Simulated scan of single mutants.
Amino acid sequence: MFYVADSSLNFAEAVSGSTAPEAILATLRLVEVTYYGFDGRLHMGQLVVSCAVEEDVREIFSLIREVRFPVNAVVPIVRYNWSDEASMEANNSSAFNYRVIAGTNRLSRHALGLAVDLNPRQNPMIYENGQILPSGAIYQQDAPGTLTESSLAVQAFLQRGWHWGGHFQHVRDYHHFEHGTIPSL
């Protein structure tokens, strides 16, 4: 089967330059996923995730591929020099990024490989004050690649015990899924 290769890094390349402690890096895995792009072609990308959620991520991306939910790109964030903003602007779906939650000193679930972002331009973060990230993104529930409460991808994450940023209280982070206990956001 022919795939468009969006990413073909090895593990060392995928975490190169991360400031994460070795204890965290030892829990991470590089997972290859296949999905249909907005071009209608089958793509292969990669996510760095915690070994605790590796099987969930494989199963969810298998479902995403099966239902042909379009995904723009899935490339480890190292390709964006560890910049969450640059990755979002490029509409990249990603997971591990050793960083804090914006505006806080608390580690993000991304820092542990326990969060996945999908299609940030179709599924932006919308703050209470109306600010939208990435800039210029528009949340249109009927647009291809958009996540809603009824989306099979959202339901697949929720059924496995993940939390969806579309349910957060003070910000709607439509592209974000995280596993584990979450603060009141």
Rank of each mutant, 00 (worst) to 15 (best):
residue 29 R to E: 09
residue 29 R to V: 11
residue 30 L to I: 13
residue 31 V to E: 07
residue 31 V to F: 06
residue 32 E to A: 13
residue 34 T to Y: 05
residue 34 T to Q: 08
residue 37 G to Y: 11
residue 42 L to Q: 10
residue 42 L to M: 13
residue 42 L to D: 09
residue 45 G to R: 06
residue 45 G to D: 06
residue 47 L to N: 03
residue 47 L to D: 03
residue 47 L to C: 07
residue 48 V to E: 02
residue 49 V to Q: 03
residue 50 S to P: 05
residue 50 S to L: 06
residue 50 S to R: 02
residue 51 C to T: 12
residue 54 E to D: 13
residue 54 E to Y: 12
residue 55 E to M: 11
residue 57 V to C: 02
residue 62 S to F: 04
residue 62 S to K: 07
residue 62 S to P: 01
residue 65 R to C: 09
residue 67 V to H: 01
residue 67 V to L: 01
residue 68 R to Y: 04
residue 69 F to C: 01
residue 69 F to N: 01
residue 71 V to C: 05
residue 71 V to M: 03
residue 72 N to M: 13
residue 72 N to K: 15
residue 73 A to P: 08
residue 74 V to C: 11
residue 76 P to V: 14
residue 76 P to D: 12
residue 77 I to S: 03
residue 77 I to T: 14
residue 78 V to S: 08
residue 80 Y to P: 05
residue 80 Y to R: 10
residue 83 S to F: 06
residue 83 S to W: 04
residue 85 E to F: 09
residue 86 A to T: 09
residue 89 E to C: 10
residue 89 E to G: 09
residue 89 E to Q: 14
residue 89 E to M: 13
residue 91 N to I: 14
residue 92 N to T: 10
residue 95 A to P: 01
residue 96 F to H: 04
residue 96 F to Q: 02
residue 97 N to V: 11
residue 105 N to H: 12
residue 106 R to S: 08
residue 106 R to F: 13
residue 107 L to Y: 06
residue 108 S to R: 08
residue 108 S to E: 07
residue 108 S to N: 14
residue 113 G to V: 03
residue 114 L to E: 03
residue 114 L to D: 01
residue 115 A to G: 06
residue 116 V to S: 05
residue 118 L to I: 15
residue 121 R to Y: 13
residue 122 Q to P: 05
residue 123 N to T: 12
residue 125 M to A: 13
residue 125 M to N: 08
residue 129 N to S: 11
residue 130 G to P: 04
residue 130 G to I: 09
residue 131 Q to R: 15
residue 132 I to L: 03
residue 134 P to G: 10
residue 135 S to D: 13
residue 138 I to T: 13
residue 140 Q to T: 12
residue 144 P to E: 08
residue 144 P to M: 07
residue 145 G to W: 01
residue 146 T to A: 02
residue 148 T to P: 00
residue 150 S to W: 04
residue 151 S to E: 00
residue 153 A to R: 00
residue 154 V to C: 01
residue 156 A to D: 03
residue 156 A to M: 05
residue 161 G to T: 14
residue 162 W to S: 02
residue 162 W to F: 15
residue 165 G to E: 01
residue 167 H to Q: 15
